[in-house]
Amino acid sequence: MTPITLEAMAAQVPDGALVALPPDYSLPSSALARALVRRGARGLRLLGVPILGYSADLLIGAGCVAEVETSAVTLGEAGFAPRFTAAVRAGTLRLRDATCPAIHTMLQAAEKGVPFMPLRGLIGSDILARRPDWKVAPNPFAPPGAEDPIVLLPALQPDIAIFHAAMADAEGNVWVGRRREIATAAHAARRALVTVERVVAGNLLADERLAPGVISALYVEAVAVAERGAWPCGLLDAYAPDGAHVAEYARLARTEEGFREYCARYVLAGAPAAAAA
């Protein structure tokens, strides 16, 4: 496995692709999101697994996004996601509201290769009322005569899963630790593009302690090295979120002008060293 550059990885994400992204607390590749802004990606359809944060707000603000399916978009302690909020108000974003367990379930159905899976809850929510692709059917296993409507959710196969792993090995396996929902997204997607902190020698699957947190190279199309690639978000126990920077982003991105200033300073001003290497 030979790592590619960040910019080469961004070039592998075609305009209009359905891209699964993690939330800020679960292995986001902020580095690749910035590279997609630099590449001028257009028409992306983002799927929050199960919610979205900094990366999505950045991509929305930069005009890279046509559609979002998610259970929330938030900057956590720094508050509402300003470019997302502005785009919803302006009506420039197609938005499909979901609820966290529904997104997990749709990806698990895709992971299993079955057409749908059922989920409790949701009946009476406007989320369901606005989702013609979600259906309510009688539970076929209910006792005779008992009424038990249940929601059926279709399998959802993203074109690409993008995330930032702690490490890759020489075989192209990547380690995500306990973040199993990211493994599910990678399993469900047609391909995974993964940025990593570092590449280690050997085979992660040969280590019984690490293997349960590994996503096999089978699912991974390409790896790019991006040190501190989750920043300003944190990465597992490796580094903490940079709350001050996220707050600065939230403050600047309140206006279109401030957002452009942020991008000029932190996104467009040259690719990071890892990408240039």
């Binding site: 199960p50 978009v73 919803v88 108000r89 509201d97 966290c100 367990p101 409790r120 369901l128």
Partner: peptide, 16 residues
Amino acid sequence: WPGREARFPGSFGSAL
């Protein structure tokens, strides 16, 4: 729908 006056972050897991 989906919050053209004031948009909140979203429903998270509440609907389950």
